[in-house]
Design a protein around this nucleic acid. Structure first.
Lengths: 251, 251
DNA sequence: TTCGATTTGTTCGTATGTATT
DNA sequence: TAATACATACGAACAAATCGA
């Protein structure tokens, strides 16, 4: 593949490593490198793009910092796989009183296909009358229902999505997106508010009507910042909290 | 200063750049480099520690990623200053409906000295009967009260803290900690929950008793991960949200 | 178990570009 | 313009982790 070589005379928007980063990202997006297998080694990528190893390392280093890639000394560099550990580490924020995370059990409450409402359409950048899948999921922590999710995804992005696919999955929801549809979530935006529970939510989470619950509007984006999932999440915070840590811990 | 040179035979826990990072952090903690002035150049630090410039760059790069240092091409590298822009960018999460941040106006509601209660003592890792300053602050966005803060800091860390210092400050609260006491906040932990407003809170934030509000328990840590401030924050989320973004945005 | 090949991690050095003063 | 400081890019050598023969 000498078609990828960066010619010396080419005009570039930014530094060379940024261009390499874009090309690696594009290969990931196009599914050029199979899941679970290492991507080409740094030396191979350096040759392919006709740049030095150091430049490839800088590009890969930034992608690793963004948790898009995972490096392992002696083994290679891998596209981040949305397994349970990755989900808990990178995207799950609900902890118990002592700050411990636990992988939740989940129960699918409903599943239907419908037209996108105004809110979902705005968040997913779709037209109002586009078909979406609209389903509800209840998450249990330590045996109790704690999180109520209403999830909407575009039918255009997940063509043959189905209730069966959701029920029979053995991986996380993001893992399903990745394994079955080649859609990898790389970024989240969460808008957190407090609301009073309505009757239905109170019943689902076993609390009183009017009780305060967290309401999280969450949009998940993929490599090129296309929104692929809109999730309304309600959390009972009587025994749990949404934990956010800013800045690195030392020790 | 040749006393800082890293001898070739010295046994080190980890890689060399990690040791350099520790030493730079220690110099920052000790106030060796004055605020507003650049720290020594990469070449000078390389000579001081007897390592290559590349090793110093790696150490500084990580500290810059942690927002402890700020690099400016052509000018130098600076200890992060807790000015208004930095506060909004690094630590403030409250946004309006369109996602815009605004520097809040603030009003000091109360100020007293008291013994630490059990909760504050646990969060600040103090004994129960230690003296703390305990004050309340109301934040206004677009002219309306939106955030109610109850703040507790140890008297041992801020010896001559006073109501006057709070009222007469022209900088952020963290800026006051930094400028007046040499205490720099580098890390936050925020535990977010939803609660029903009690009568006093409802009055302060102009909402109905029982209305759902965000309750954020926040601990601020300094360089060596010592907790220096405990803050209970209540947010009216009728027209605002707590925004959390995970993963880097491209474009 | 040992050894060797592969891959990432660390450290050094040098040269050049760009931003600031 | 010149000097300084950070940013980018290259190359080389060795260390440490992994894996299969």
């Amino acid at each position: 593949m000498t078609t990828d070589t960066l010619l010396p005379g080419a005009m570039l928007a930014g530094p060379l490593y940024a261009e390499v980063k874009k090309r690696i990202t594009k290969s990931l997006m196009d599914g050029e490198w199979p899941q679970g297998m290492p991507i080409p080694s740094e030396a191979q990528l350096a040759q392919r793009y006709a740049v030095s190893v150091g430049t490839v390392r800088k590009a890969i280093g930034e992608l690793a910092a963004e948790k898009v890639l995972v490096r392992q000394a002696g083994r290679g560099t891998f596209a981040a796989s949305h397994n349970r550990d990755y989900m808990l580490d990178a995207f799950f924020h609900i902890v118990d009183e002592r700050g411990n995370k636990e992988f939740p059990a989940s129960k699918l409450l409903s599943f239907r296909r419908a037209k996108a409402d105004a809110q979902a359409a705005r968040r997913l950048r779709l037209d109002d009358d586009v078909q979406v899948f609209d389903f509800e999921n209840l998450l249990y922590l330590q045996g109790s229902p704690v999180v109520f999710d209403r999830i909407r995804v575009s039918q255009a992005v997940f063509p043959d999505f189905s209730e069966d696919a959701m029920r029979q999955r053995t991986v996380t929801i993001f893992g399903l997106y990745q394994d079955r549809y080649g859609v990898t979530v790389t970024r989240l935006e969460e808008w957190v508010r407090a609301v009073n529970a309505d009757a239905r939510l109170a019943r689902a989470l076993c609390l009183q009507r009017g009780a305060a619950v967290l309401r999280i509007e969450r949009v998940a984006y993929t490599y090129d910042d296309t929104p692929v999932e809109f999730r309304e999440r309600y959390v009972d915070t009587r025994n749990h909290a949404y934990l956010n840590v800013l800045g690195m811990k030392k020790s």
